[in-house]
Design a binder for these strands. Structure first.
Length: 779
DNA sequence: GTGTAATGCTATTGG
DNA sequence: AGCATTACAC
């Protein structure tokens, strides 16, 4: 623990001023890498040292992980145990807790369910169908986006339907019923005791607007409010903050307009640009010194962002060394891009002793991870992909979570629909449909119908009735214990009792095994939660309030709002792969920014609108400024999309970079018909066209050698690179199954599967990377 | 009601 | 190309 008093010495002058200016409205405009987290951390620590009760401090961060890390740092500075009493987390997690505490004011159950995007889209799709609307016109995704935007602008279903402008727009676009879907959607959410993500903010606004006593209560609780990444707040969040801060006016927002990249989900850059209008007496601090990156990187980033019109004036500079030039890499195909990136990483590790964990590969869309993964795997470099299908969205994980959700809130219709017949228990589509219709007719939940099936005249057989009441009895037996039982024990009982664990265990295909493992992993997490007490997401326990025991209910309240970005870093040394959006707030010594092509980055959806293009440019700026030491840019001339090859042009953003920061091995980046950009190294010899006959000497000999030299292959236990050229019709020999013939192949090496007909044991479906297989003959 | 084959849709970005 | 939903056979 540090001695008190001197801890602020670790800040520069502006940082220190910003940290100690605790009273009144404050805006900290913080350039990339200027130490804003540090300022926020020290500021809160300073408040506590001054004697401010941590219960009175609120800090809203962009991810829960950021909150967790900041809390840890504050605890280190301040010492003692008080740090845990700060209210910290994302908007969604903090206000979902407040909504649970005040649930009765809004007529919601305390254990309301949080619907994720998939749940809410599925509900919207149901409503569209029930209303007899054409799904081709009323695309669920589009309707969902419209509803989401409305909620984030605090526009209720009624105002939506009563707004002449909107009604006119919807009519003109041939979709006059969106308002109706919105109204029904909200009604159904409420009936199910569920909120979608946007409701967590919307309903917080309703709560604060309609209940003055509640507003005053939280105004007085949150005497000091901090909002990180303020440039990415939406209107709904803006109003919440404004309301809460109205009484004490100690509001500190931190952000960088140049890094606003979430307009697509309602973030309003005007919130930060107009902060001064809302609080004319504000103090502004500009953090302009970058401590993160080399001069080259900072200058390159500046040269790009100056192409944007609307921004707050600031000049980011750094005292860091010049550093290496940014290298630009051209590849023939997306796959070759992956190979070259992997190869360059290999060189970095050899020549600069770089660790995997110091390296990030950033891309615009999740789909781009595939070619990067392939390249890394071949070079035997271990990596982790963030984002994409998150753990909690995997089918098997969501299935079990749906049981948990239903146990906690039997009104949760989306969960009910998901698992009522999984594992199959003879309650099929027709029965479910009858139940849903009856529920709708009586305006009660499907669960209520099932619970009282004898009271309703539903046309179903006695056998099916029995199955339904068995199901109801099972869920109820878990439900009565949801409050007090040990969450892990209860979770295990549910997983076993519902038959899901057995179902997965019996599936011996490679995918089935992995599904089983995923469920086990979920249960392990639940176990940790059970043993570790309440979570970091829970609000501090108020004085006089009894300490919360871990329960399944608490667990579910937590994980509904967790994302991949919140995962604790593991200690494994792995390269990070993620979208640029996901990289926000992170930094790496080595950054590879890939896929710099027109219509990919900037995205095809953005090129026709100035505002959208500026957002893409800010995204590019964010990507560049993640790098501390060295930065590599790359693009491919052709790329597979929807399974077919398309031609690409280099991104305009490359042309916007100050050429002096770039390393071209020849004359530099010119017009598209010139070919000045050479690869970093000799190109990896790769077949561009799939139709080429399999190479006689096998896949790049060097690759194999490197793969053998390395220690741990990311996934495979065996070096099966000789199976890359496996083709249908080949004769093979298996360690255990004997000799056989390849019947079919699918997927991409080494994650491909082969169906092989063995002479002795019949047909087997094998995952190539695990198969102990030899090629015996070509035919 | 259940399991498999065929179709069709998707890939901005995410709490 | 890969996945989810739908169509169709048992």
């Amino acid at each position: 623990m540090k001695n008190s008093g001197n801890f602020l010495d670790g800040l520069n002058e502006v940082q220190r001023k910003a940290a100690v200016h605790t009273e009144g409205p404050v805006m900290i405009v913080a350039g990339a890498g200027s130490g804003k987290t540090r300022v926020l951390t020290f500021r809160i620590a300073h408040l506590m040292k001054k004697g401010v009760d941590p219960f009175n401090i609120l800090a809203l961060t962009f991810t829960n992980k950021a909150a967790r890390e900041m809390r840890e740092r504050i605890v280190k500075i301040v010492g003692g145990n008080e740090g845990k009493n700060i209210w910290m987390g994302t908007f969604h997690s903090v206000f979902s807790r407040i909504l649970r505490a005040e649930h009765d004011k809004l007529g919601y159950p305390k254990n309301f369910t949080i619907y994720d995007s998939d749940d809410s889209r599925s509900l919207i799709r149901d409503i569209i169908r029930e209303q007899g609307l054409d799904e081709k016109i009323y695309k669920p995704n589009m309707v969902q986006a419209r509803i989401s935007i409305s909620k984030n602008n605090l526009m209720s279903a009624s105002s939506y339907n009563n707004n002449p402008q909107i009604q006119e727009d919807d009519k003109m676009s041939g979709k006059p019923k969106i308002g109706l879907v919105y109204r029904i959607y909200n009604r159904r959410l409420f009936k199910a005791g569920a909120m979608d993500f946007d409701d967590l903010l919307y309903n917080t606004n309703v709560l604060l607007r309609d209940h003055l006593d509640i507003l005053v209560k939280y105004q007085d609780r949150f005497k000091y409010i901090h909002v990180d990444e303020y440039q990415d707040t939406n209107f709904s969040q803006y109003v919440i903050v404004k309301q809460l801060a109205a009484r004490h006016r100690n509001l500190c927002v931190v952000g960088d307009d140049a890094q606003s990249i979430y307009a697509f989900r309602g973030a309003n850059i005007q919130n930060i640009l107009n902060f001064e209008k809302d609080y004319p007496d504000l103090q502004t601090f500009k953090l302009e010194q970058n401590y993160r990156s080399t001069k080259t990187i900072v200058e390159a980033a500046n040269s790009v962002i100056k192409n944007n019109k609307e921004q707050l004036k600031k000049t980011v500079w750094t005292g860091n060394p010049e550093g290496d030039k940014i290298r630009v890499l051209k590849a023939l195909t997306d796959n070759e891009e992956g190979h070259q990136v992997a190869r360059t990483i290999y060189d970095l590790k050899m020549n600069e002793q770089a660790y995997n964990r110091h390296i990030a590969i950033l891309y615009r869309t999740n789909a781009q991870s595939r070619s990067m993964e392939e390249g890394l795997r071949k070079m035997n470099i271990s990596y982790k992909v963030y984002g994409g299908l998150s753990f909690y969205q995997r089918k098997e994980v969501k299935d079990l979570l749906s049981y948990f959700r239903l146990v906690i809130n039997p009104g949760d219709e989306e969960s009910l629909k998901r698992i009522i017949n999984y594992p199959t228990r003879g309650i099929g589509e027709t029965t479910l449909h009858k139940l849903l219709v009856t529920a709708n007719d009586h305006d009660v939940s499907t669960w209520t119908i099932m619970e009282n099936i004898q009271d309703f005249s539903v046309d179903i057989t006695p056998a099916t009735r029995k199955r339904i009441s068995d199901f109801v009895a099972m869920i109820k037996s878990f439900n009565i214990r949801a409050h007090e039982a040990n969450p892990y024990d209860l979770g295990m009982e549910i997983a076993n009792g519902c038959g899901l664990l057995k179902e997965l265990y019996n599936d011996k295909t490679p995918e089935g095994v992995s599904r089983y493992e995923n469920v086990q992993e979920l249960l392990n997490g639940l176990k940790e939660f059970s043993e570790g007490g309440t979570s970091f997401l829970a609000p501090p326990t108020q004085p006089g309030e009894e300490e919360k025991k871990p329960s399944l209910i608490e667990y579910m309240a937590d994980i509904a709002l967790l994302t991949d970005a919140d995962e604790e870093d593991d200690s494994r040394d792995r390269v990070s792969l993620m979208t640029i959006h996901a990289s926000k707030g992170l930094e790496f010594p080595y950054v590879f920014l890939v896929g710099l092509e027109e219509n990919l980055f900037p995205s095809q959806y953005s090129v026709n609108s100035r505002a959208d293009l500026e957002e893409e440019r800010r995204l590019f700026y964010v990507a560049l400024t993640r790098a501390e030491k060295r930065l590599f840019l790359s693009f491919a001339e052709t790329r597979y999309r929807w399974g077919s090859l398309i031609n690409c042009e280099p991104s305009r953003f490359i042309g916007e970079l100050d050429p002096g920061c770039l390393a071209f091995e020849e004359s530099g980046f010119k017009k598209k018909d010139e070919r000045p950009i050479r690869r970093f190294k000799e190109p990896y010899e790769e077949k561009v066209f799939r139709k080429d006959p399999p190479s006689k000497k096998g896949p790049g000999k060097n690759m194999v050698k490197l793969a053998q030299a390395g220690k741990s292959y990311t996934e495979s236990k065996y070096d099966n690179s000789h199976l890359k050229d496996l083709r249908v019709g080949m004769q093979v020999e298996h360690d255990r199954f004997g000799s056989g013939k390849v019947v079919s192949l699918e997927g991409i090496f080494p994650n491909n599967k082969a169906i092989i007909e063995f002479e002795d044991v019949g047909t087997k479906n094998l995952l190539i990377k695990f198969a102990r297989l030899k090629i015996v003959a070509e035919q």
